[in-house]
Nucleic acid binder design. Structure first.
Lengths: 234, 234
DNA sequence: TCGACTTTGTGAACGAGTGCACGAGGCCGC
DNA sequence: GCGGCCTCGTGCACTCGTTCACAAAGTCGA
């Protein structure tokens, strides 16, 4: 559930109020999780709490940052400077959080040389050189689905072992590299799934194990879904 | 996790090749999951497979679309037309997947009337009217973190029960509404977490000049080798 | 110094989700 | 028509994450 980064953000928020310590209960509330889980999670990083008091905000902040590898910047390259790629390049949110956009590349020679934000688009063939010279650590794939796997392969080959995929395709990276996926359409589809289900805008589905329960007399019990939520969300 | 939309995409891909049927094994391979899970997942939608043959692609496609509520469009409003909001508005990927962007709103009167893509920015106070007139089903929050909760409340109050939050903040919606979150910085932090762990905490580059800058104040405490991956990813 | 109070850290119970293995059901060649 | 073969549907065991509950440990006031 990606909790460590959420704790980090909560701690940053708390730190701004000059609060010196925070309890697992309060941190849990801010992060939207169970207090016991917070304690167990933090215990994996080490015993950084003080019983009867809580956690020292500054110290915990440092420990979480260190665990996440945020003690230094991680230069990023965006591959595929179409609509989405250009949008991401212009979005300033990355740099200010420690992920400066160091390069933009595209396979289309027509795009090379184009200025986007305050960077100039390079050709994807130059990826190995750029990666080495700029110390690029993370590659963002913003290409069409068909090109995504090839781009991921090129990124890994260029020594960039972390890939964030925005393309609507299932891709894979070799052992030793990591891959995350952001699919905006999928997120919207999940929302429409739940909304559709609340509205009961579909014919009733026979529940597994209840073979005789079909026809028009299906109980309109919205709290008894036949499809597990895990199938479409988390 | 979020498997139904992935099946949908795989099925769309298969359908383009004029393949009439598909086995759970092949579908599993395309979606990157276990074959038994595919069968179990699909069995929740009903018994749509034929033993010895597989699943009829067209029919299954329809059933999955219906379950996800994709038999009709879901108009979307984007709240917060800053860098990210404008980027999302210009990104064409939503409309073509059945989520047309019907309106853009912002709290800043200075932005109202501005043209973004082929829409004009409205004021957020007009949200209830817009929602009703345009039949808006989903709200995308692209505001700063501080405004996110307020915006979510306004969306729900305006009768928009599905919220996709891009703001880096934990927000909540009342029972009966649904919420999804996309935090780009969190995705990058997860990647840096894994990369950092593989490298044993070293920076991505050995920058000439300050090789020890971020290691100097860190007590080289051995980070616990057994942090569960679930803590920072999935 | 002592005792009441607070909050952490963690063993153990619980539950959800996953994958195996196999029976059930349908197709096809002979 | 029948037997062999293929693939679905699903009971069951297992794994792993979550939550409960409580002892350990530290603070603070008297």
């Amino acid at each position: 559930m990606v909790r460590l980064p959420v704790y980090l953000r909560s701690l940053l928020e708390v730190a701004e109020t000059k609060t010196a310590t925070i309890s697992s209960e309060r941190l849990a509330e801010m992060a939207g999780v169970n207090a016991a889980k917070v304690r167990k999670d933090l215990s994996y990083l080490g015993s950084y709490g003080t019983r009867g008091v809580g956690y020292d905000v500054e110290y915990l902040l440092f420990q979480v940052s260190r665990e996440l590898g945020l003690t230094h910047d991680w230069p990023v390259v965006i591959v595929g400077i179409g609509n989405l790629g250009a949008a991401l390049a212009n979005y300033g949110g990355f740099t200010e959080r420690g992920f400066p956009i160091a390069a933009l590349v595209d396979a289309d020679h027509g795009k090379v040389g184009e200025r986007v934000g305050d960077l100039v688009v390079s050709h994807i063939d130059d990826l190995p050189d750029l990666a080495r010279e700029l110390g690029i650590a993370i590659g963002i794939v913003a290409t069409p689905a068909a090109a995504a796997q090839d781009v991921a392969d090129r990124l890994v080959a260029a020594g960039i072992p972390s890939v964030l995929n925005f393309a609507p395709a299932v891709i894979s990276v070799p052992e030793g590299a990591s891959l995350r996926k952001v699919d905006l359409a999928v997120e919207l589809q999940i929302l429409s799934f739940y909304q559709q289900r609340r509205n009961g805008g579909r014919p009733p589905i026979v529940a597994p194990g209840d073979p005789h329960l079909d026809g028009a007399d299906a109980p309109r019990a919205p709290s008894a879904p036949t499809v597990p939520a895990s199938l479409a969300g988390d």
